[in-house]
């Protein structure tokens, strides 16, 4: 096989080449600089995120819902009405309304859009077959999962935090003169609004994890809706004493504690809520990582 020598003279790995040292190839081609690194996989996932129209639309819808419902809730607020105009769920579970809880009314809707975004980013690769190209390029597989999470989490966090701020600011004139009016500088307001962004950033990662775990958009979206919206309702069928003990730890309840202005008596503190919700996400990610590495694609 004289042709082999012509191109490269390979010594099949006596020791695995884990360091950055170049392969012991003969330098016949100037292309030996090619190498997969964590940063490069991240760069690739970043580019994939921004080059799909469906991704951009879903992201836009999420932020739009967040701002729209927050602002509307503030404008339609009347102190006499019971509860808020939003649907039951996170954001309105803490009883009395305040300027922040009104501003984050849209989280209930935005979390679905953001979660779906995560699902599409991950499960969409399976339904289209793109995953085969992706994993052929990164056969160690796990960097793909981490990179997807590391791309979508911060993007969702930043944009939805801005969205929550915008909702609050847009809603402020609507609450002009009301007892519950607050300004950005007031105690806990910024923390709560950033908390909403943090929660939604984690929801996005949760969506990615579900997508990689279930490999199917419809299934993963169903699971997302089930966990975030239906689980708390189902759990109310539990005996009261159990429910009271367990309910703060449900993903959506722990999550809503992150962006509540005042900690309600039956909820976790923002920090604890964040830890618990992040724990759920981490658990799902671990399951996704296991399936990603273990099963054929």
């Amino acid at each position: 096989m004289p042709a082999t020598a012509l191109r490269r003279n390979r010594r099949p790995g006596k020791h695995q080449n884990l360091s950055a040292a170049p392969d012991p190839k003969t330098p016949t081609t100037p292309t030996t600089k090619y190498k997969v690194t964590g940063i490069r996989v991240l760069r690739s996932e970043w580019s994939k995120f921004w080059t799909l129209r469906s991704t951009l639309i879903t992201l836009g819808v999420a932020v739009f819902l967040l701002v729209l419902f927050g602002a509307i809730a503030s404008y339609t607020y009347s102190p006499d009405a019971v509860a808020t105009s939003g649907p039951p769920g996170p954001g309105s579970s803490s009883g009395d309304s305040n300027a922040v809880s009104l501003a984050v009314t849209g989280v209930s809707f935005a979390q679905l859009a953001i979660g779906v975004l995560g699902v599409l980013l991950a499960a969409g690769e399976y339904s289209t077959g793109m995953i085969r190209s992706t994993l052929a390029a990164v056969p160690r597989r796990l960097p793909v999962l981490w990179s997807k999470a590391a791309v979508i989490g911060p993007i969702a966090l930043v944009l939805t935090t801005l969205g929550a701020l915008a909702a609050f600011q847009l809603g402020t004139p609507g609450l002009d003169g009301e007892k519950i009016a607050l300004s950005l500088g007031d105690d806990g307001v910024l923390r709560s609004l950033a908390g909403a962004g943090l929660y939604l950033g984690l929801v996005a990662v949760f969506g990615v994890a579900l997508g990689v775990l279930l490999r199917n958009s419809a299934g993963a979206i169903a699971a997302l809706v089930g966990v975030l919206l239906i689980l708390p309702g189902l759990a109310s069928l539990l005996p009261d004493s159990w429910y009271d003990t367990l309910s703060p730890y449900f993903p959506s309840n722990a999550g809503s504690a992150v962006y509540a202005l005042h900690q309600s008596s039956d909820a976790l503190s923002p920090g604890a809520g964040l830890a618990v919700f992040a724990g759920w996400v981490a658990l799902t990610l671990a399951g996704a990582a296991y399936r990603l590495v273990k099963t054929d694609v």
Binding site: S44, S47, K48, T51, R53, G124, T128, I131, R132, S133
Partner: peptide, 15 residues
């Protein structure tokens, strides 16, 4: 093994 929503260039670039 390609996402149909991406352009050929962007697909190759991602890889």
């Amino acid at each position: 093994s390609v996402h149909p929503g991406r352009s050929a260039f962007n697909h190759l670039m991602a890889l």
